[in-house]
Write a protein that binds this DNA or RNA. Structure first.
Lengths: 223, 223
DNA sequence: CCGACCGTTCGTCGAGCGCCGAAGTGTCCC
DNA sequence: GGGACACTTCGGCGCTCGACGAACGGTCGG
């Protein structure tokens, strides 16, 4: 009857603690093997396999076989969006909890959000790009605009090499849940994180989604 | 282990066709009585009551008793965001399929979106209202502003008769999934569709949500 | 005050689904 | 080739949860 996409199908897939845990583990855009996903979800390999099959079937994950491993990753940024918007509906937790543990502080400072940067540092970088007129001010959830790629920071980040032809919006504001302001997502956001990782300016920390920001990069922004 | 809010709780609530239908019906911000929600979900009052209780318990809905009715509404914009982001994950439909079938073309041209207009035609109409300074430019998901009701089109649509006192935002941008731009929702959007239907300027097509737009109305906009 | 109506609560039934262990397929390494 | 390993498939168990009818508070209208 309704021509609309059925909301309940993806929601049902996410509405299972084991599957939700898997999706969250994949939120930073990496591809993880089935076994690891089984362990983050605290279920047996058999159970995990069934869950993963359903997630692929439902279009939330993509699978890719590599040797005797099978790697799973989010099917796209829309999936990450949906996962994060649902996370915001969870039981309200006081902000104070984020100032307590060291891990929490690292996450609030800089972390990966699917395939781009998030956290206080991400906002600082986005602000710089806005102030040097590389991009227009960001709006949460809305597509943005690239103004120029010849700014100081834009050149350092090699933004001229970013894919501008892709079907994905080049710039997009993604609401930051620690800072409550949009940070840089979209194809450009993904490109920025990639360049930062390749150059060694930021590094993924094992165990969580936090990122280490090098002194070199901090100076680059500070100066 | 995970300090994160549990994604699976709200997702599970939305992962049930009857509850999903209720949430979608409330997506435009109106408050609807339990009975009406039961009918949109095609379930008995008893079943609907149980579902609604769970949605309130889970913080997705707010309830408010008025006389012998009980009105339910979305608990906040974050809920609408989550619902909409999940809708975008529905069964992958290639863009090509929308240029193929006649039905699909009709839906892309003009359709109803809950209680207001959507599709290419809806955007054309919204653009006219913006250009004649009746409403401020729309932003997806955000409440908008009525500037005046004395424009040419505003008078034809009897916008001065629209309910401006309701608790529902008078104007709201609702992201159009075929055009990727916000169209006119909210109380004013509902009023516009109602007037168009009453005047016979648009007519509902049986079987789907597409609308037939009369020549008279097209000329009105074209001129 | 009585009947019509709206909504919730209760009891019950049946289906769906998540879980695991065991067995099967394919890959890597020695 | 043989054995360890990664993952999937199969079969079966148990529980959750969604469905309804019937009965119960509350509210409005005559």
């Amino acid at each position: 009857m309704d021509g609309d996409a059925d909301l309940s199908i993806p929601a049902r897939l996410m509405g299972e603690p084991a599957r939700a845990a898997m999706l969250v583990a994949l939120l930073d855009g990496r591809a993880l093997p089935a076994g690891e996903l089984a362990s983050v979800a605290h279920v047996s390999p058999a159970t995990a396999s069934a869950h993963l099959a359903r997630l692929v079937e439902g279009g939330l994950l993509r699978a890719r076989s590599l040797g005797r491993h099978r790697y799973f990753e989010l099917a796209g940024p829309e999936v990450a969006d949906a996962v994060e918007s649902l996370q915001r509906l969870g039981p309200r937790r006081p902000v104070t909890s984020y100032t307590q543990s060291a891990t929490a502080r690292r996450l609030a400072e800089a972390r990966s959000c699917y395939d781009h940067l998030a956290g206080r540092f991400a906002l600082e970088l986005a602000d710089r790009l806005v102030s040097e007129r590389t991009i227009a001010p960001l709006e949460a959830g809305a597509p943005g605009t690239i103004l120029a790629t010849d700014g100081e920071l834009a050149r350092r980040l090699r933004l001229d090499e970013a894919p501008r032809q892709s079907r994905r919006p080049a710039v997009r504001g993604c609401l930051d849940w620690t800072e409550r302001r949009p940070h840089l997502a979209g194809a450009l956001g993904a490109h920025v994180l990639e360049v930062l990782l390749v150059e060694g300016w930021v590094a993924r920390m094992p165990g969580d989604r936090s990122l280490r920001v090098s002194e070199e990069l901090r100076n680059m922004l500070g100066g």
